[in-house]
Amino acid sequence: MTRAVSAADLAPTTYAWQIRATGLKVRVGGNRMAVDGLDLSLGTGVHGLLGPNGAGKTTLIRALATVVRPTAGSLELLGESAGGRGEHRALRRRIGYLPQEFGYYKRFTVREFVEYMAWLKEVPKADVPGAVQRAVERVGLADRADDRMKALSGGMVRRVGIAQAIVNDPAVLLLDEPTVGLDPAQRLRFRELLQELGRDTCVVVSTHLVEDVAAACTDVVLFAEGRLVFQGTPDELAAAGGPEHVGDSPLERGYSALLAGSGRERGSW
């Protein structure tokens, strides 16, 4: 098995943005548009995807992961249209994805699971052992690599999820709520990892936790009711809020200010 992306790896990139959505609409269930006319361009860096519950973050990430097909509009990933039919095989080799509900085979060991995922992502056979070892080390699970998954704690499982997402050195890395279940020390370590990855990868991190964004993201995407509310640096987000807005930190105040401004935040939760 040879890797079909080698040509794409070597050629100069023919796209300006790793992720580019224009008028993107994604329908979930019967007729609810979870993503409703989104225009978004994301390049290299760590992008924090913020938004209230039900804003459509998960649906957007699933569309980016080519799991759901866009209903309307265009979605370009790495210069290739991800909207149409087809297997997106070459594209999927270059995507890393950690779903919100990360399922895993409980009888597998950590190493076996990450190796299995590397195989599914069509990592060249010769590179697999090295890539697996690197991924497991990067999430700090080298000493538990040969433990069964069912013996791991919730935080460790989440880290295995991150390891499988990065095992193929993706150009687009999609992490849906990656910090759930991580203890504070692990969260710090995870932010470092994000910054490291963000140097050459387009990382999209969906989260509820504004402080994660402040610490690790180069860019914030604020999302509500399926539409883009704000895109800019964490500093710009902080600047949007004033003392009159709800929140314990400048970022949180900026977050509330923007959502209140868009008139979209309803209810006390």
């Binding site: 594209l91 999927r92 995507i95 779903p99 509900e101 399922g103 409980k106 599914l120």
Partner: peptide, 18 residues
């Protein structure tokens, strides 16, 4: 039943291998 019990469907759909 393994894929269903493990809730692996989502992750498997996103991978390139047929």
């Amino acid at each position: 039943l393994r894929d269903h019990r493990s809730a692996m469907g989502e992750l498997l759909t996103s991978t390139p291998r047929p």
